[in-house]
Nucleic acid binder design. Structure first.
Lengths: 231, 231
DNA sequence: GGTTAGCGTTAGCCATGGGTAACAAGACTG
DNA sequence: CAGTCTTGTTACCCATGGCTAACGCTAACC
């Protein structure tokens, strides 16, 4: 490529376009509540913005028909049908992009999320379909999350995490939380990936020990908490 | 895919993020001038914005070190070294994306430009490199424009257009102007694509007639003007 | 030489996205 | 029950991107 890292040639602080911000709010509400109403403060924390910004965004989103907030005393943010459809579409695009970036372009697992996070706001539905077809309609992304092909909300109950597993137990890795790049990098390096079988050998200090295939690896507990597992 | 065209779920007017706008200005200045200074009014027309917006953008771009506008009486906008590097990077990304969208995802030629136009602002240099590698470092995009792999400005003189060719002459199509979707669609349908050999059979009215391979097709002169040719 | 057209700039307005400071109300905690 | 969070909202402020109106200047054109 060129001699300069051109990405650094222009760095503007926020870089929030109107639709990008709105889509982020909708996605956050959806991912926090899984369809159920969510508190504005939770959204603020999730997106690292002030409560005020959420409050203002609320009005705009209502104007767009994406939100159906109850009248006077009721606080929680609730997505409208339209809002939910948008959220699911965003999740679909995100996961398809992650899969494509990882499988076809060899982007390291821990960088896939950030890249998809930006691209998901600018691709058309048609393009998302084409990517899905190109990949053979994969059922899950590289972090182990299912890809929703229709708007049927398949939220699913939260699974336990690897950090909560008792010593001696043998579990199967289901998914990694892609929001934590550092954890994903460490886990991928350790071979703790969706589908892997893992036996917990020690789990008392900040570092747990885990047997993964032929290797015994040491895992930061915080990182282990990013791993959803099944028995 | 889902039942709703989720792209329509949110439609915000301008959708100009800070970096997007700046990158568009830089690209416009570059493409209009090919490295040479450009008049602000020309940029305004090219981007469909007011002269005032260009004037304000000028100051911001100077602040970013992307523009080196002369002091008092001199008017034209001139890109700095950094600005030129960014412009070339944008062109590179754009053309790589177009190539990928067309070759790998089968996006119709006339839709490739618009899609790339949005994505080019959000992908990293690393991703652009990976796309280039994935495609085998193609030398030109599907419209026939060269892909610049280094920052050496290979502007190249403007070639004549198909509309200016005398009857009876036989020419080779070099490139199509991807900014005109309608023309690109019509030309692609007619088989007038980069690399094709074309003989002009009539060129007097608004519709010219052209022999392209085994077919004789009728071409709108305006569309023919979007075709750059060589002998 | 005067008129006219085009150009760049300033002043002022709007929307969006983000931020503090401050406050009233509800929800916990003691 | 009092005290302390927490929460949502309001009132302002800032930056960006875009707009129109208006002005001064230059450069053509008669």
């Amino acid at each position: 490529m060129g001699n300069k890292t051109a990405t650094d040639l222009l760095t503007v602080g926020s870089d929030r376009s109107p639709s990008r911000a709105r889509e982020d709010y909708v996605k956050a509400i959806y991912q926090l509540g899984g369809g159920a109403p969510v508190r504005a403060a939770a959204v603020a924390r999730y997106l690292n913005v002030s409560r005020v910004s959420v409050s203002k965004a609320k009005r705009l989103l209502e104007g767009d028909g994406l939100l159906e907030s109850e009248p006077a005393p009721a606080k929680p943010l609730r997505l409208s049908h339209k809002g939910r459809a948008l959220a699911v579409a965003m999740v679909r695009r995100h996961r398809l992009l992650e899969t494509f970036l990882h499988r076809s372009l060899d982007v390291p697992l821990e960088r896939v999320h950030a890249e998809a996070e930006r691209i998901e706001h600018v691709i058309s539905d048609d393009l998302a379909s084409r990517i899905a077809a190109f990949l053979g309609r994969p059922s899950s992304d590289p972090h182990g999350h299912p890809i929703p092909y229709d708007d049927a909300t398949a939220a699913g109950a939260a699974l336990p995490t690897l950090a909560s597993v008792a010593v001696g137990a043998c579990v199967v890795v289901v998914s990694l939380d892609d929001r934590d790049d550092e954890a994903v990098g460490a886990l991928a390096a350790a071979g703790v990936l969706p589908g892997a079988t893992v036996r917990v050998e020690r789990n008392d200090t900040a570092q747990m020990r885990v047997r993964c295939g032929k290797r015994t690896v040491s895992l930061n507990r915080h990182h282990a908490a990013m791993v959803r597992i099944a028995t």
